[in-house]
Amino acid sequence: MRARRGGHLTPLDETLLHSPPVADGWNTLLGAIRTQTLLDADIRELAILRVAALNGAAYEWDAHQPVALRAGLSRHQTDALRGAAEDAAPLLTPAQRCALAYTDAMTRAVDVPDEVFDRLRSHFDDRRIVELTAVIATYNLVSRFLVALHVGSPGGPADENGAQA
């Protein structure tokens, strides 16, 4: 976990380490999602930010907005992802708009309408659709974990010694 993070642990890592088997599996999954897919980084980070915005996961947003900017999204684009999809859409490429619609459908309703999925297929091959789906599903897991345990928030969970997790 420390190696994947460049030598330091985040509040999320420290929370996960209360269960070493969960931390190990989490690290493996997130490492694969972040570094071993063919999905373009801008699409991956757009999906992550949108999930964070929809689920109110401020810690996730703060961690990924700089990554999204490095991946080629503009500050204007990332800021728009916090609002309504129809407001963000004009700032995005056609592939990014399809990824946004897919992210919204998966996060809000789980079941994706055929028309959203059909538009997605016009921009992504099967592997990238699987990878995008895994990104969205994984970061829904991450955001729900962060929000439920108030990771990175004042008043977050305390460990056995009373320290912030």
Rank of each mutant, 00 (worst) to 15 (best):
H64C: 00
Q36I: 01
A84I: 11
G72E: 10
R5L: 05
D159R: 01
I136T: 15
D40H: 12
Q77N: 08
H18A: 15
A137M: 07
N161S: 10
A71W: 08
L49Y: 11
S19Y: 00
V22I: 15
R70C: 01
E14N: 13
D79R: 14
A3W: 09
A53N: 07
A101D: 13
V51M: 12
H64P: 02
D40F: 04
T107E: 03
T103E: 07
L38A: 15
L46D: 12
W26T: 05
H8M: 02
G72F: 03
R5Q: 09
V116F: 05
N55C: 13
E45D: 09
I136D: 01
V147E: 10
A57G: 00
H64N: 05
D125P: 08
N161E: 12
S19F: 00
E45G: 04
P11L: 08
L73R: 02
V135L: 08
S153P: 00
N161L: 10
S74G: 07
V51S: 10
A57W: 03
A88K: 04
T35A: 02
R121E: 13
I129L: 09
R4H: 09
P11E: 11
L146D: 01
A53V: 08
L54F: 05
G72V: 08
T107W: 02
A158H: 07
L92C: 02
T107K: 07
A63F: 01
Q164M: 13
D111K: 14
I48T: 06
A80H: 10
P90G: 06
L30Y: 13
P21E: 01
T133H: 03
D87V: 12
H150E: 13
L73D: 11
F124E: 02
